[in-house]
Structures are given as structure tokens and as C-alpha cells.
Design a protein around this nucleic acid. Sequence first.
DNA 1: TCCTAAACGAGACGGTACGTCTAGTCTTGCT
DNA 2: AGCAAGACTAGACGTACCGTCTCGTTTAGGA
Lengths: 198, 198, 198, 198
Amino acid sequence: MISDPNSERRSERARRAILDAAFDLVNRKGFAKLTIEAIAAQAGVGKPTIYRWWRSKGAVVLEAMREELGDDFRFPDTGDIAADLATQITAVSQRLVTGRISEAYKGVMGEAQNDPELMKAFRETILEPSIAECRARLESAVAAGQLRSDVPTDVMVDLFYAPIHYRHFLGFGEDAVRRSAELVQDVLLGLRPRPEAE
Amino acid sequence: MISDPNSERRSERARRAILDAAFDLVNRKGFAKLTIEAIAAQAGVGKPTIYRWWRSKGAVVLEAMREELGDDFRFPDTGDIAADLATQITAVSQRLVTGRISEAYKGVMGEAQNDPELMKAFRETILEPSIAECRARLESAVAAGQLRSDVPTDVMVDLFYAPIHYRHFLGFGEDAVRRSAELVQDVLLGLRPRPEAE
Amino acid sequence: MISDPNSERRSERARRAILDAAFDLVNRKGFAKLTIEAIAAQAGVGKPTIYRWWRSKGAVVLEAMREELGDDFRFPDTGDIAADLATQITAVSQRLVTGRISEAYKGVMGEAQNDPELMKAFRETILEPSIAECRARLESAVAAGQLRSDVPTDVMVDLFYAPIHYRHFLGFGEDAVRRSAELVQDVLLGLRPRPEAE
Amino acid sequence: MISDPNSERRSERARRAILDAAFDLVNRKGFAKLTIEAIAAQAGVGKPTIYRWWRSKGAVVLEAMREELGDDFRFPDTGDIAADLATQITAVSQRLVTGRISEAYKGVMGEAQNDPELMKAFRETILEPSIAECRARLESAVAAGQLRSDVPTDVMVDLFYAPIHYRHFLGFGEDAVRRSAELVQDVLLGLRPRPEAE
DNA sequence: TCCTAAACGAGACGGTACGTCTAGTCTTGCT
DNA sequence: AGCAAGACTAGACGTACCGTCTCGTTTAGGA
């Protein structure tokens, strides 16, 4: 009769040690060579303690990444949507390819391709909040007449974010990913309000 | 004096049996639960025969996928670049989300995130030929005055293909992936020649 | 910090299952066809559990044999050394050629020829206790004037036990081994006190 | 319809290379780590050539040993049976524990414990010729009145040879084996003709 | 002297078992 | 009671050899 461990008895010390160990190891060894045993050993924790609170190493790393990332998905708003998009995409590309998060991200996303639950968790905790921020900014740009109003903002989000993730996942290399922000301008051209659409 | 086994002695029978078994198993069990032992067993082949010719299960599945795909990456050419892009993106989305290849593709790409050699092999055998075809078509559209000449065609390829892969890899669901062709038109708007840019 | 598994945490259930399976299999399949995998499978135990506690299949079988043998190496003492030796050698020959132990013994001794550690373990746990018992009996026979006092008792032990093992190891066949007890009398003749050694 | 390879077509070059390689390897690596593949590689020979002419690595090593030994099992005959036995046992002990043959012998005998065919071959090619020589010498000693005539000579052979093999196979160490010749005298005492047994 | 059948070298093959690694579960004190 | 520790069952890993089976290529005897 194993109750689920919804307890407040949970040890914060253990939780922190596990996330720190996971994050350290994924950066030093790479996601593929990361093992739950190694996390437990480095965290000074028993394996069951990990399994009690997480489903898989992907879930641990996802949470570690989330904490490392902070919960600030703020989108800049200078009034100039083109500049703000460039700023944001540049920031994201730096996170993905050079930042502390990059190894963990690559690992989690690879794993998530074959683990729907992990994908769901990723979307809920990271992707969707970030998309929501972007949409809000795009809405305000539409309202300001800087973007077409006949294209749904969630489609616009896809168009702006797609190239950077595409290049990242399909192995285009760090330079290409970093230069993704340049593409924003070409996409924007198609999303500007039609000059004199009669 | 251990030579690599580059021999003409290789058994075509074994090769076929392995690729067939791998492809069957990846579809029935999923990539994550696929094991080299199971491939060997189903193919009626010894494990060393697999390790002799492939580095990992990812490499086997990649090759199986490649064979299943055929080597035809032809891009349609009706003269109307918008229609051709829509046709092609639709075809790709069907391959990725509903086709025989979809499970294998997801598995290989997930694996490749953490296996640079596999990523390299994927790019060389599948991605780059397909990109080359697309670029050739775009060049002819540029020449025909249907597209801007001041945006490199390889950047255009990225813009057109990015949304579909972005939605696929970030878990947007089958419907979203399938509707990616619709985005082509919005991207195209930004890539049309400037009306009469003075 | 990998400690050797010297723990009291060891599962007695697993230990018994492994020894029982090993003993059963060595008798049914023969030592040469015995595998650690088969022992693990029949014992319902993981292979690492075996490797954690034993160095080789020889070591497992040695321990199984030891347990089967019991730790009673008692030597009979009726006061008549000739009779006692005959009794004991007969008993040993029955153990070696017809007893439950015979297959295991042959296997372990064959293996031990090429595995000094196994040989050492065999000598310490089985051979030396048994020799010690024999020597003690011979000492008392010397004291009783039934044997020469100028031949070291450990040499006598060798002389009495040698023929049976010699015949066993050099493949003289079951009958010859069983009749080894008869040779005791001829050896004894040389070890009786000299009649009129002046 | 596979004919056995009873041919005179056999390559003497290959045979020699195999036996030499086997003998070299068994001495350098030990019998346990000897493999047929390694023999084939070192001999510059295909594996099937070995399997065509021998059943197992034990059989190869046995033959290599036999050749190394030469076919001279002569027993010395000075007229003094005690001296001759001591000479012979000393010679055998040197062969077993220090000679070129020792590693091969230990390996073959260990293997033979679990391989009756190998044991049979060993007995026929090495043991029995050697025993026959010894018996012949003992017969002449009996005829000369140096040994009792009421003990069968094959039993005597066992008594003389047993200690050395016993010590060798049961791991008594090189010194003990080498000193086995000393025991001959004690055994002899029991086999001398009874002074005047009325 | 050539022919031809075999033995030969080479090495890929289907297999088996190896010994290791990691997963995920269960057990045993300790705090 | 939850924890650390770690032994447990389970099973895949990648490797080493096994013994068999083609392949051409010598090579040696009989025609």
C-alpha cells in the first residue's frame, strides 16, 4: 500500500542536491551519459528518493533546467516590434547554443521525442509560458498597427520562433543558430499590414 | 592488422533482414523500446553482424528509413512556386506525421540530438539532398522573378521548412504539423519581389 | 567510493538459490556446459548478484560442493589403523566416483588446474581440513606403535591418498578408482614399524 | 557428402605452424586464455584448417606437447630398481613442474577432466606408453627378485607414480612435486620380497 | 604438363556466453 | 515515517570466440 508521496515531509535538501547534481552532470558528461545512479551518488541520495519524485532522468533534468532558467519569460517591449523580436530571438539563441542551459535542453528535447509525458511537461512548464509572453507582445503590436490583423498571433509566434529551433534541432551548427535572428526581418515583411490593400 | 570489414563478402541477405526487422520493430514498439538484441533476434542474425556494420541502433534505423524513403527527393515544378511549395510541404508533413517513416524519424532525430555522428549521417543522407532539391527550385523561381533576388536561397529554404519541423519537434501535435503548409503563404509574402521599390 | 560488498545486507535467499541451481545444473549438464547465465536464470537471480559474490563458475560450484559435503571430515578411529584407512579411502572413492559430489568435483578440479585462486580456495576449504583429520589419526597410530615414527605423517597422508586421486585424475575409470582402497595394504607394509630394527 | 579429410594432401607446413603457435601461445598466455582464433592468426592459417584436423584446442595442445616430448618413454635400467625409479620419478617431476611442457600439461589435464575424448587421447598417446615402459622395468625387477611377485606390476606402477601426480594435480606446489622422488623409497619398502615369510 | 580436386588463407556469418552497466524495486537500519 | 544506502531482479549492452560456411587461391597427384 504505497501512498503517493504527496507529503510535506519531502526533504528540500535532497531535492536541491538532486537538481544540482543532475545539472552539473549533464553539463560535464552530456545527457546521453547521464545516469540516475550517478545523480544519486553525486547528490548523496538514494536512488529511490529520485524515483519517488521524478519519472525519469529527463524529468529531473527538465526541472533542473527550469530552475536554472528562472521563471522569467518576459518579452521586451520598446514599442518597436521588429527590434523587440530581434532582441528576444537573439537572447533565445544564446541560451540554446552557448548558455548554461544548452546541454540540458538538447538532452531533454531529444528524450522528449520518444517520451510524450516528458514532452507534455516541457511544453507546460517552459514552452507555453514563453509562447504566451510572445503572443501578448504581438497582440499589442497588432493593436498598434505594426502587424497584420488577419494572421492569428499564434501562427505568427510559430513563424518567428520556427527558424531558430529548426536550425538547432536539425544540426545546422552554432553559427547558423546564432544568426537566426536575422531571419526575423524577412518573416516580418510578410506580416506587416498591407500598404494599400484595397 | 585488423581491417575494417569493407568487404564485398558482406551478406546482402543479412543486411536486408536487419533493416527490415529494425523498421518493423521501431514501428511496433517505438524507438525507445527498440533494442539491438531484438533486431538481431527478429532478423535471425547474430548481434556482432549488426555491430560490424552499424555504430548504434540509431544508425540502423536511419538506414532503414533511408531505404524506405527511396532516394527520390524531387521537388515539383509546375512553374508556380507558391503551389509547388504548398504541395511539397504537404507531402513532407504527411511523411512526418502519418507516413510509414514517422516513428523512425522521431526516434532518429531524438537520438541525434545527443549523438553528433548520427546527426551528421542524417544530414548527409537525407537532409542535404532534400535541401538541395528545394534550393534548385527556388533558384529557378528567383530567375523567373517570382521571388526576391536579395535573399539567399538557402535562407529561404530554412524559412519554408522551419515551421513544419518546429511544430513537429516541439510537440504541437499532428494536426498542427499537417496544417503547416498554410504558413507557406505568409512567409512567401515577405519573399516576393518588392513591387516597385524605388 | 565503491565498497566491496562485505555487507550483512546479503540475501541468504539468493545465496541458497544460486548454490542449489549450480549444483543441480552441474549434475544435469556437466561442468563444461554449465554457464553463469543458466545458474542465474534457474536461481531466479540477476547475473550481477553472482558476480558480486563469486569470481567464477568454479568458485560457485566449489561452494555448492562444500555445502553439499557438509563440514564433517571426521576420520574413523576403531584402533585398527589398517581398517580405518580402508574404510576412509573406500568412503572417499565412493564420494568421488559415484556420489552426488562427483561431477562437481571433477569440474572444479579441472578448472583449478588453470586457476590458481580456485585451487587455493579448494585446498583451504576442503583438502586441508580433510588432510588434518587424517594426520591426526595417523599420529595416534604412530603413538600406538602401529606405524613407523621416522616417516612424517604428512608424507604418509600423501602416500595413502595419492593412488585414489591419481587414478581419478588420470582417467583410470570408475572401477579402478573404487578399488583404490586395496592398495592401502601394500603401502602400509612399508610404513609398519621395522620388525627388528636394531 | 563430406568425406573426412584422410588425405595425403595435408599441408605439413600448416600442421607445423599450428602446433608451434599453439605451444608458444599456451606458454605465453596460459591454457585458459588460449583460443583457436589466436592460434590460427599466429600460425597464419584459417580456422577451418584447425577444425579439419583437431576437435578442440585441448587436442591441438596435446599433440603439440606430444611432439615437444618426443616419443622416447624409455625407463632407465641400471639393475638397481630403487635407483632407476628415483631417477625416473625425478625426471618426470622436472618435466611436470619446470619443463617446457608444464603449462601445456596442466592445461590439457584440466580440460581432460571434462572431456572424455581428450582424456582418452592423452592416455593412449602419452600415459599408456609411459606406463608400459615402467611395467617392463618392474617385471624385470620382479624376475631379479628385487620386488614381490604377488603384487601385480600395474598396481606397483600406480603406487610409484601416484604421489607425484597427486601432489601436482592437487596443487601442493613445485617443491613438493619435486621432492616426490623421495617417497619412492617408502613405497618400495612395502614391495620388497618378504624376508622369509613362512 | 596440364587438370582437377583437395586443402588452404581469409573472414563473414549465426550463435552463445561473457562480464558490465543501468534501470527500477525492495530491504534494512538510521535519524 | 522518510531517509541513505545499497543489494536485489531484470535485461540490454558491446565484445570475444565459437564452430560453420562460403569464397577465391594454391598445390600436388593422376591423366
